[in-house]
């Protein structure tokens, strides 16, 4: 089956990408000035203590040896120990990554569920009032900085109206359900805790909308352009000549085909959302990877920064793999070529 071939090829590709990514980040992070051992030891430590720490961390070994050790570690599921909190990096990622992924996925859902209908309306009523409206929304979305929009919605919905919380993932006074998937929405449902679910949902609305709004415009514009393109195609004329109504032509003939190129945009959007969440997370005090990686960079915490990089790269490659597989599932022409 060609599906398997694509997966196999992509997995080989994945290994190469990860090797490249770790090599580059490893090199950069070890070339920039600053001594992690000194940071850990503190200002008043004697040179002997600093040397001891350096020796413990293997920082005195040749660079290639450190790199080899690091990569071997990753293969065994060991991302090293972070310098700042002295905890296994993997453990931290396990806590922070699901929070970011949950936010990114819900933001993508917002962008898609609003962006696709707006794009369709815009294409069907091209140059009409609704099209102008959608185009304004799209440009606004693309050109609005997420952190600024975040502050505005906090001012309005928390400050003025008092409807929604300003930050965090869940009401601080509430018991957090046991972590199973790391997605708070899912975990609270699994635990049968509807109060926790409601609270987590409320906390998600503002950050997800803020993050999603930026991509909503991209999605709407993409769907509009792709649908307009499909509606120009000869097969649409054939369908009209066969008496198929305009409504059915849009939704059963043209839109499914227009969604094929749009899948790429959605995949890219999810990738962007993952690391684009950094600023939004800061505004909303969202306990995700954003805050974690910003703090780690400031502390020269290389293992943590590299762990973040590896995870995001891994996510990117996997998202692209998913996009490719969806392509093959929906477009017989691509299946054929593969």
């Amino acid at each position: 089956m060609s599906f398997l071939n694509v997966v196999r090829r992509r997995l080989i590709f994945l290994v190469l990408v990860l090797l490249g990514v770790t090599l580059i980040t490893f090199t950069i992070s070890h070339l920039i000035p600053g001594d992690p051992a000194r940071m850990i030891a503190g200002d008043r430590a004697t040179p002997e203590i600093v040397a001891k720490i350096r020796d413990d961390l293997g920082l005195d070994r040749p660079l290639y040896e450190q790199y080899a050790r690091y990569v071997t570690g990753i293969v065994q599921g060991d991302f090293g120990t972070s310098i700042r909190p002295r905890r296994p990096v993997l453990e931290d990622l396990r806590i922070f990554f699901p929070a970011t992924l949950e936010l990114a996925l819900v933001a993508l859902l917002v962008a898609t569920s609003l962006g696709v209908p707006l794009g369709v309306a815009s294409a069907v009523w091209k140059n009409k009032l609704i099209d102008q409206f959608v185009r304004v929304i799209a440009v606004t979305g693309i050109s609005t900085p997420a952190f600024w929009l975040g502050l505005l919605v906090i001012l309005l919905f928390y400050g003025q109206l008092g409807l929604l919380p300003s930050g965090g993932r869940i009401d601080p006074s509430m018991d957090v359900p046991a972590t199973i998937t790391g997605f708070l929405l899912v975990d609270s449902l699994l635990a049968g805790r509807f109060d926790a679910f409601a609270s987590a949902f409320k906390h998600l609305i503002l950050p997800a909308f803020t993050l999603g709004f930026v991509h909503l415009g991209v999605v709407a514009r993409q769907v509009r352009a792709a649908l307009l393109d499909e509606l120009q195609q000869d097969y649409v004329r054939t369908a009209r000549a066969n008496g198929i109504s305009s409504f059915r032509i849009v939704f059963t003939e043209a839109l499914p085909n227009a969604m094929i190129p749009s899948i790429t945009v959605l995949g890219l959007a999810l990738g962007d959302l993952l690391y684009g969440a950094v600023l939004t997370e800061t505004v909303f005090a969202w306990p995700g990877m954003g805050a974690y990686v910003v703090n780690s960079i400031q502390a020269l915490d290389f293992p943590a920064v590299m762990g973040f990089t590896v995870v995001v790269s891994l996510a990117y490659v996997l998202i692209n793999l998913a996009v490719d597989l969806i392509y093959m599932a929906v477009d017989p022409r691509i299946r054929e070529v593969s």
């Binding site: 195609q233 000869d234 097969y235 004329r237 054939t238 369908a239 009209r240 000549a241 066969n242 008496g243 198929i244 109504s245 305009s246 003939e253 499914p256 085909n257 094929i260 929906v330 477009d331 017989p332 022409r333």
Partner: peptide, 27 residues
């Protein structure tokens, strides 16, 4: 009306075009 026209198209009157390459839905 357009609905009446749609009922006639394909049933009472049909049309074929120049480019068979692109006249069918590719997917």
């Amino acid at each position: 009306t357009e609905t009446e026209m749609n009922e006639m198209r394909g049933r009472d009157v049909a049309m074929i075009f120049q480019e068979p390459q692109t006249a069918l839905n590719p997917t």
